[in-house]
Simulated assay, not measured.
Amino acid sequence: MSESSKPHPLDRVNEAAATAPDAHRELLRLLAVVDAFRGEQGCAWYEEQTHHSLVPYLQEESAELIDAIESGTASDIREELGDVLFQVLFHADIAADFDLEDVARDQADKLLRRNPHVFGPTPTRDIDEIIRLWHEAKAVEKANRTSVLDGVAFGMPALALAQKVLGKAAAVPVTVTPATLESADTDAIGDALLALAAAVHEAGVDAEAALRDATRRLAERVRAAEKIREATTNSELDEN
């Protein structure tokens, strides 16, 4: 087929939209747009990307969505949701071992499994019961985990990561002595964090990297404590 006789990428997108059912017309049009980035008439830059190379874009788009939710308009949120959705479709499209159907299937299965209060044999709208059932479902999934830190995404922003690991560490227990605060209200804590960030900036230190390193050291303490606890438990079992 000559170059001139090949369907133009835009024609392919328009055809997909024209033949799609009304309920999902725009979603299917977006999928056709993503698909058109690949192939002879597609985008060379797009085809060179990997999951790793796209990480900065995913981080940026996620941050912009959060910003829109916190201080933007409904239109801003709508736009940023679209950018995040494109990142999901982009990753699914370039993957070698799975596709969007696999992603959707796994997520649907997970939601069905983790929400027995909606999809189980005895639905309930009681909040306490919902939380109990959710924890039970999560416990089944975590049965093969060997550490409270398994499943923690260490690539998340440093402050969020620190709070996550601190919460997990408390169950071991491994503790960190908290700083003394003049007040525990949100404004005072925000001001204290901002003042600390200013001091770190003045010192020429990367605050994100410093906190991430400290959190990883805490994680090492947690894993070491877990090993000691496991060894002690095994020793007691042997004695009995």
Rank of each mutant, 00 (worst) to 15 (best):
L30H: 06
G82N: 07
A195M: 13
R223H: 12
L54N: 01
I69D: 10
L159K: 14
L218F: 03
D99H: 07
F119S: 11
G204I: 00
T50R: 13
H135F: 11
E15A: 13
L30K: 06
E141L: 06
A192Q: 07
A214Q: 12
H51Q: 09
N234I: 01
D11V: 04
F90E: 14
A18R: 07
Y57S: 15
E220M: 10
E64C: 00
P9N: 06
M156Q: 09
R38T: 13
R114T: 15
H135L: 08
V205A: 06
F86A: 13
I189E: 04
T186A: 08
F98N: 10
A23N: 08
V172L: 03
V172P: 04
I77N: 06
A192S: 10
D185N: 05
A23V: 06
I94M: 03
T177Y: 01
S75M: 13
A20I: 03
E236P: 11
A95M: 00
D35F: 05
D83Q: 03
N115G: 04
A219C: 03
A16N: 02
G155Y: 06
V88Q: 13
S183D: 00
P7K: 02
E15P: 00
T215K: 02
H117E: 06
L237F: 02
V118S: 01
A162K: 02
V84Q: 11
L111F: 00
N14K: 11
P21H: 05
A207N: 00
R114K: 14
I69K: 11
N144C: 12
A92E: 07
Q163A: 13
D187E: 04
A44T: 08
A198V: 12
D238R: 05
E182N: 09
D83M: 01
V103Y: 07
E220A: 15
R217M: 14
E182H: 09
L54Y: 00
L65R: 09
A139S: 15
R216V: 11
D150L: 03
L159W: 15
R113K: 14
D35W: 08
